[in-house]
Design a protein around this nucleic acid. Structure first.
Length: 411
DNA sequence: TCTGGGGTCCTAGGACCC
DNA sequence: TCTGGGGTCCTAGGACCC
């Protein structure tokens, strides 16, 4: 029997301005206004005596926060996620500033994913506001409706959108194509509140005119290199020989670039995955010096280790690799890590290992960020005495007071 | 007025073993 | 005493994504 490649329909669903939209559900009076989410905890809205609410604006913001999400009204002023709040304040000083409330966003994330699962259960998580959905096995997906050969897919995608809308009050955008790569691109073609179906035959007309940066996996660096080579659009990338790309971008990435430009992507929708690492990091309000701010740094360092330990324990994991991350005042970032004989989720063990890592870093420059990470995770089985012992609190916690001894005086 | 926090994956060199 | 490959683990950095 000849084997025929089954026709796949893969959807990519992206919630529209997710964090901001969740906030608008509880503050409906902000609808239509420029609103940005981000920054610390200091700008909570306050409720006045008459029941109305007063919101902070960007105007007087000081600090190192960035925008995590901006409403479409705010984007009209040229602000976008990732932009520093100080910079955004110059462009749109009257934008409302709300603090992030991950607890709430996670709740709505679970809600919208459950709503999707009622229609199509094969879902791959891509973070809090995005999923891939394999529609291939959903009944009726391959059937035409009237004279529309894509009627089946369209109806199911529409049903997913309706269900998300009615259970969460939130809008999403969906792209549906034969694979994840194209669906990711397609979901952005009609944002917000869009539904876009692209067939393989439409690749030249609908995908090739787009900039290469729209491809998930071509970031700032690769985008700039391609531009320097005279390649701006996906079509121009598709026109290059694979060998030409391999010669310039390496065997793996070069070949992938070629396939991606031709809309080739066989990756499956993965419904389950295990975490590889867990980490905590923090950026300081002002840059700290190892010697001068030793007490503060030591306290932060311990807190990060404790948070990582708690995260591991809460989720039932232990890490065999413990690492640290430091970012200096010149934004240079270094990491150090250390592999233990046994995985651990114990605070004292983590801090001890992280402390050893710290000794391998030159702490002359001031620090702007400190992070702690546990990698090579395992899920210790209950009743495994050896691993249970490794998880138990270790005797003798080193005080850590000498963690941040500076090697030299920079001044 | 510099640029958050939480991740994944890839590469590359050196150690170490066969 | 010198010269090999291959495989795996460890470490550091970097690109990229949400």
């Amino acid at each position: 029997m000849p084997s025929v490649k089954p026709l796949r329909w893969i959807a990519h669903l992206d919630m529209d301005a997710f964090y901001a939209s969740v906030e608008l559900l509880r503050y409906p009076e902000l609808k239509g206004l420029p609103v940005v989410i981000g920054g610390g905890r200091r700008h909570q809205p306050e409720t006045l005596a008459d029941g109305s609410r007063r919101f902070a604006t960007l105007r007087h913001y000081t600090g190192r926060g960035v925008i995590t999400t901006a409403t479409y009204a705010a984007r009209d002023y040229g602000v976008h996620s990732g932009m520093g709040l100080m910079k955004a304040a110059l462009r749109c000083p009257d934008a409302v500033l709300l603090p992030t409330d991950f607890e709430q966003y996670r709740r709505y994330s679970r809600l919208f994913k459950a709503a999707v699962a009622e229609v199509a259960p094969v879902i791959e998580d891509r973070g809090i506001d995005e999923i891939y959905i394999d529609l291939s096995e959903v009944p009726g997906v391959h059937e035409a409706v009237g004279h529309d050969p894509l009627g089946g897919v369209r109806a199911i995608a529409q049903e997913i959108r309706n269900n998300v809308r009615s259970t969460t009050g939130l809008n999403c955008s969906i792209g549906v194509t034969p694979n994840k790569l194209l669906s990711k691109i397609a979901s952005e073609l009609d944002k917000p509140d869009g539904l876009t179906i692209v067939t393989a035959a439409e690749l030249p007309t609908r995908i090739w005119p787009l900039p290469v940066r729209r491809i998930n996996g071509i970031g700032p660096k690769a985008g700039a290199r391609l531009q320097a080579l005279g390649i701006t659009t996906i079509g121009e990338l598709a026109a290059r020989d694979k060998a030409w790309l391999v010669a310039r971008f390496g065997r793996g990435y070069g070949a992938w670039l070629h396939d991606a430009a031709h809309g080739i992507d066989e990756r499956a929708v993965v419904t389950h995955s295990e975490p590889v690492s867990m980490s905590r990091e923090t950026t300081f309000e002002r840059d700290l010096h190892a010697r001068h701010d030793r007490a503060e740094l030591t306290a932060v360092f311990s807190r990060l280790c404790e948070q990582v330990a708690q995260d591991l324990q809460r989720k039932g994991y232990a890490g065999r690799t413990i690492g640290i991350k430091l970012r200096f005042d010149d934004f240079k970032t270094v990491t150090r890590d250390l592999t233990l004989a046994e995985p651990t989720a114990d605070f004292a063990a983590i801090r001890h290992a992280a402390g050893l890592c710290l000794k391998r870093v030159d702490l002359t420059r001031r620090l702007r960020l400190l992070g702690v990470r546990a990698g090579t995770l395992v899920r210790p089985r209950a009743g495994d005495p050896e691993r249970a012992a490794a998880q138990a609190p270790a005797a003798g916690v080193d005080p850590g007071l000498s963690l941040f001894d500076a090697p030299a005086d920079p001044s």
